[in-house]
């Protein structure tokens, strides 16, 4: 009897510690406020909820982007936009998935370039869940499908200001 309760206590302590650690490691996605601006292009982020992306740092600071494209520009050249951070400080990166408009982890989706779907800043690297990449590519004339880690500078489309209605 006593041993059982002891095991229970230990288990609960362990799980509590584990939970708090995992919470510290993985930050939940944030919602952009009406003040958050994209550090790359300076545009307000909140009107483009179906495109917004975010990088959350381990110290709790964060950056919002009006689309995955600008998130990659930032991610691939952090010192240019934020001198105090390096890629090692990043806790989580989230993007908004195209079909569901749900916020998802950037390393869990595929980015399709060259499609006819325009973001707030024109051509985009559209975030698509892996199982729908084929559909999207054929429907929207996608050219390249890349995992998060495969995206390089060369894959980022040129930004032409293109306001979505």
């Amino acid at each position: 009897m006593r041993r059982k309760s002891f095991v229970l206590i230990v288990l609960s302590i362990v799980s509590a510690v584990f939970l708090s650690v995992s919470m510290a490691l993985a930050a939940d996605p944030l919602k952009p406020t009406s003040k958050d601006k994209c550090p790359v292009c300076g545009m307000l982020v909140h009107p483009y909820t179906q495109w917004s992306a975010q990088i959350i740092f381990k110290d709790g600071t964060y950056a919002f982007f009006d689309g995955p494209k600008d998130m990659f520009k930032y991610y691939l050249d952090i010192p240019k936009y934020n001198k105090s951070k390096t890629s090692a400080d990043i806790s989580d990166i989230y993007v908004t998935e195209y079909y569901s408009t749900k916020v998802m982890k950037a390393d869990g989706v595929t980015f399709v370039s060259g499609s006819d779907v325009m973001g707030p800043m024109g051509k985009e690297l559209v975030a698509i869940t892996n199982d729908k990449v084929k559909t999207f590519t054929s429907d929207h004339k996608g050219v390249k499908a890349l995992k998060f880690s495969e995206v390089t500078d060369a894959d980022i489309p040129d930004g032409h200001m293109h306001h979505m209605k």
Partner: peptide, 9 residues
């Protein structure tokens, strides 16, 4: 439809 841009498709 979740994403209005996808409605025509």
């Amino acid at each position: 439809v979740s994403n209005a841009s996808e409605v025509p498709t």
